[in-house]
């Protein structure tokens, strides 16, 4: 595999073995790729990210990560598990899930502490993230007191502090105001420039063009129906409409009312 990080072949996954979440996924991720997975709610994007993070495993098909097939047994080997967790970081869709410690600071340093990183390095990275994300005032606060934007920033910080090669982000801008969205998008672009591979799941088409070089469209049938450059995918209104990614917008011009598919691709 040439610089290949993930290689998925005919991946199937079903919750409890009977509720299909993914049906035959094939794709390859190379080093420093910028990938967006777009699709309507319930299309299996989050499941796919959890599979890539080695939290769940395919019922059928294979996932190879850094040249080795991901299997549950492999993670019983502490050294492999630590190495994998250091290389792949996942930002969960719901920050409430990811922020489980009593204070923000403890949440941010939780990962590197478990991975046995040197305390001096943890402190140095923490200081850097505090500056970049402007979260100094939040450190001693309990996560439940934060706004959704602050929670999202802290969740991202708690993954970035591990400094993984691959960043998996599940709906990183969902529910955020435009300014915070901008801040997070800029941060992710910066992380990609510093050499990280980005895999972002979203149905927020505003951010796709900036955060992806390749876009995969996941259908309600839980499979990838199309992939390509963001410009080409975003220009295909029929495809987007068929997968609930744009809506029919109805508006009036003086006496006449007409409808057309509606899509915003950038923030103003």
């Amino acid at each position: 595999m040439n610089n290949g990080i993930f290689e998925l072949k005919n991946v199937h996954f079903a919750y409890l073995g009977k509720f299909p979440a993914l049906c035959g996924i094939d794709f390859t991720v190379y080093q420093q790729d910028k990938i967006a997975l777009i699709g309507a709610n319930g299309s299996g994007k989050s499941t796919l990210l959890h599979l890539l993070d080695g939290l769940i495993f395919p019922g059928k098909g294979t996932i190879r990560a850094f040249g080795r097939e991901l299997k549950e047994d492999l993670f019983n080997d502490i050294s492999y598990s630590r190495d994998f967790r250091k290389r792949v970081g996942l930002v969960f869709q719901n920050p409430e899930v990811q922020l489980f410690c009593p204070t923000v600071k403890e949440d941010i340093v939780f990962g590197p502490l478990q991975l046995g990183m040197d305390k001096a390095i943890i402190t140095e990275r923490l200081e850097r993230l505090i500056c970049v994300l402007d979260i100094k005032d939040l450190l001693e606060r309990p996560p439940h007191q934060l706004s959704i934007g602050e929670k999202r920033k802290v969740a991202i910080a708690s993954t970035l502090i591990i400094d993984p090669e691959v960043l998996l982000l599940d709906e990183p801008t969902a529910g955020l105001d435009p300014l915070t969205t901008r801040h997070i998008v800029d941060l992710l672009i910066q992380e990609h420039k510093s050499g990280k591979t980005l895999i972002v799941s979203t149905h927020d088409l505003h951010i796709v063009e900036e955060l992806a070089d390749t876009v995969y469209v996941v259908s309600q049938e839980k499979r990838i129906v199309k992939s390509g450059k963001p410009q080409a995918i975003l220009a295909d209104f029929q495809l987007l409409q068929a997968h609930n990614l744009i809506h029919i917008h109805r508006h009036s011009h003086e006496d006449t009312t007409h409808a057309h598919p509606h899509l915003h691709t950038e923030h103003h």
Binding site: H50, D53, L55, I78, S81, R82, R85, K86, G89, L90, F92, N94, V97, Q98, F100, K105, E106, V109, F110, G111, P112, L113, Q114, L115, G116, S158, T159, I162
Partner: peptide, 18 residues
């Protein structure tokens, strides 16, 4: 979900706390 989030950041049964 919380357990998955913990495993994702390297938790393996014996927590290390700052």
């Amino acid at each position: 979900d919380v357990y998955s989030a913990m495993r994702s950041r390297g938790y393996s049964g014996e927590p290390v706390i700052l």
